[in-house]
């Protein structure tokens, strides 16, 4: 007997007590919880996002839509970044004012090569205010998962307010599960030493978020 038949057979025998006409999934799962916690204007939601990102040690910068290029150029210069990784499909205007050397992410780039790049700039798919979370889905301007992982400095641009949602329940319908998704809440961290949080382990140790939109 194959492992499959054995496991499924055991499951069915174990569930002999479950009536065949049990109520279906839709009826059983009461969703009495909230879609979002509290009512906020889009501006207040953006404020909450900024606060929660900062609470987990992301560096938050707010600017008008027309100031993204200048903001990014300033951040790269302040970091002393000489090279910046550019994922496919990134808005070229965002890097127009930076003097850092652009490194295109190519399919054949090895992890070792990515490790030599100083910074990476990406957009995101959605940002969640209540949890201070950015979600990247690998579409244009967000890159393969590795580009936001190996370099030590990640700058992520969020378009405010259209990319910002209040809560996790409001974020999921905006995401396509068929895409590889990375949820990022602050720079990498660990609680493994005496259950105290320390920032900076394997992922980028510095996460800067540019909230681009009218104040």
């Amino acid at each position: 007997m194959s492992g499959r038949e054995r496991v499924l057979g055991r499951v069915r025998r174990a569930l002999a007590d479950v009536p065949r006409d049990e109520r279906p999934y839709e009826e059983v799962i009461a969703r009495d919880y909230l879609r979002e916690h509290g009512q906020r204007t889009p501006a207040k939601t953006a404020d909450l996002l900024a606060r929660n990102l900062a609470d987990y040690r992301a560096l938050v910068h707010r600017c008008a839509p027309g100031e993204v290029a200048a903001t990014i150029a300033g951040l790269l210069a302040a970091r002393g970044a000489r090279t910046v990784l550019v994922p496919a499909g990134l808005d070229p205007a965002w890097l127009a004012e930076s003097g850092a050397e652009r490194v295109e992410d190519r399919a054949e780039s090895t992890p070792g090569e990515l490790d030599l790049v100083d910074s990476v700039v990406t957009g995101c798919a959605v940002a969640i205010a209540e949890t201070g979370t950015l979600v990247l889905d690998g579409s244009a301007g967000q890159g393969r998962r590795r580009v936001t992982l190996v370099p030590d400095h990640h700058i992520c641009v969020v378009r405010v307010p259209d990319q910002v949602v209040a809560s996790v329940p409001l974020a999921l319908p905006r995401l396509d599960p068929a895409r590889p998704l990375t949820w990022i809440s602050g720079p990498s961290a660990t609680s493994d030493i005496e259950l105290s949080r320390v920032e900076g382990v394997h992922g980028p140790r510095t996460l800067e978020v540019v909230l681009a939109g009218a104040e």
């Binding site: 209540e130 393969r144 996790v168 599960p177 590889p180 949820w183």
Partner: peptide, 30 residues
């Protein structure tokens, strides 16, 4: 539901720093 209850219960965070989701394989990524 679980992405709200798990991080708060385990590390007491609103959300853990990284969550990865993947569905099978993706051409050119991973």
């Amino acid at each position: 539901v679980f992405l709200q209850t798990l991080p708060r219960s385990s590390t007491a965070e609103r959300m853990n720093p990284y969550t990865s989701m993947w569905t099978g394989t993706t051409e050119g990524d991973g």
